[in-house]
Design a binder for these strands. Structure first.
Lengths: 238, 238
DNA sequence: GCGCGGATGTGGACGGCGTCAACATCCACC
DNA sequence: GGTGGATGTTGACGCCGTCCACATCCGCGC
């Protein structure tokens, strides 16, 4: 009944042992990460509820229960995928920030940066609805407090401290504040800015999906401008 | 094998036949509504994913497959529960509107009305997180277009046309416009206002849950004020 | 060198889920 | 008063998450 494994894992391990991320042990060395990536793939296809343990294991080529050596249960895996999705969101925001050509005037530049951050947030949500939904789950299930702002804990990811989405937003607001343009206290501003952009993204994904391409585009820029304008005292034209 | 039903339905029917909503026929007369209400109860306990066909039927005291005589599949039932949740949200907004004492100046009054609508929206979300999550589902599952704004279709609910949440918002904005205080075109204003309030609600339910009671309270009023201020040209103090 | 123990992965089973097909029941209407 | 269509039930299938017992393999101490 108990035959020895039909080899594919050995082959895989040998093929990838030198280039792969971790020590390529025998037991498929570095499952967990493989499971998380398969989970990301599932989440991309249909949101958090599409992450299904058995299918995830199947895609990695492993038995369902193998996952229990690395996650205490399914929600644990989903949490990990959520963290990954937030990391990707932060990367998208940074990318939008770098694509931008800086302005001479520091105030104008700060406004531009904040706008880029907001648009990056929304564009990621629209480009990866499944991952975005996974990153900020809703549904009243009381999703385990974790970290208050859901940014990575300061010690996460080894020694490299990763900025999360809300940290990036706070940076942009700090620049605005430094230019003397921030109209409210930093905490309130962060909250209101995040809320505005988050709501825009969700409306565009939900009730306002089906908007024609160009209408949606102007809704994004107008919406973000609306939020930015509300945060600034004296405003500038970009 | 095939015994006749063990009576409870007959008893229930007899007991409630005179007071219940519809004709109390024999076949448990008016399942569907009973299923929807049981679904509402489930949704209240844990959001849309808690609505489970078998349990819903169990609570109504009926076999699982009976539901298929009234809904083509589970998502159909969930949709119905979502509609009901949106109706309740609209009622909560209206209630907040009526609790308010009107102001003499029409501009001030319009601002107050808009504020009440926004706060009503958020307070409902916080009071009934499960129903709110069901009313506006997220998750990237492409939830069937239905109606663009997800307000009830004009012919819904017999001859009584019911205003949905976004219709109520539009009314408040129309009043503001009539007072000459609306800063942007109605469509844009609706979208931005909804986005702001929706984002506030979701942040308070998600990343910003765990806020102490009074901090949350000021976040609500400050947040709504932020949105209202952004929508108005010249502003007033309430 | 070698063997053993803990980490990692497997197989089988259980109960719960959504859904389908076949069958039973009962009201309404002729 | 009998019958047909609406309504509800039973049983089965294939998924799911999770538990338990067992197999496999690596690394460490001898």
């Amino acid at each position: 009944m108990r035959r020895t494994r039909p080899v594919p894992v050995d082959v895989f391990t040998l093929l990838t042992s030198s280039m792969d991320s971790q020590r390529a042990g025998y037991h498929h060395g570095n499952l967990r990460e493989a499971l998380v990536q398969a989970g990301v793939e599932l989440a991309r296809e249909g949101g958090p509820s599409t992450i299904v343990l058995r299918e995830t294991a199947r895609r990695v080529g492993v038995s369902p229960n193998a996952a229990y050596r690395h996650f205490s249960a399914l929600p644990d895996l989903v949490d990990e995928v959520a963290r990954d999705s937030r990391r990707r969101l932060a990367e998208a925001m940074d990318a939008e920030l770098e694509r931008r050509t800086p302005a001479a005037d520091p105030g104008l530049d700060a406004v531009g940066r904040l706008t880029a951050v907001g648009e990056g947030y929304i564009r990621y949500a629209l480009a990866e609805p499944g991952l975005f939904a996974t990153a900020f789950p809703t549904g009243g299930k009381t999703p385990a407090p974790e970290q208050s702002g859901q940014d990575p804990a300061p010690d996460e990811e080894g020694d490299e401290v990763r900025r999360g989405p809300s940290a990036i937003l706070q940076e942009a607001l700090a620049a605005l504040d430094a230019a003397g343009l921030l109209a409210e206290p930093a905490a309130t501003a962060t909250f209101n800015a995040w809320a505005g952009v988050h709501g825009l993204a969700l409306l565009l994904l939900g009730p306002y999906a089906e908007l024609p391409e160009e209408t949606r585009e102007s809704a994004i820029t107008d919406g973000v401008a609306f939020v930015v304008r509300g945060l600034t005292t004296a405003q500038a034209r970009s």
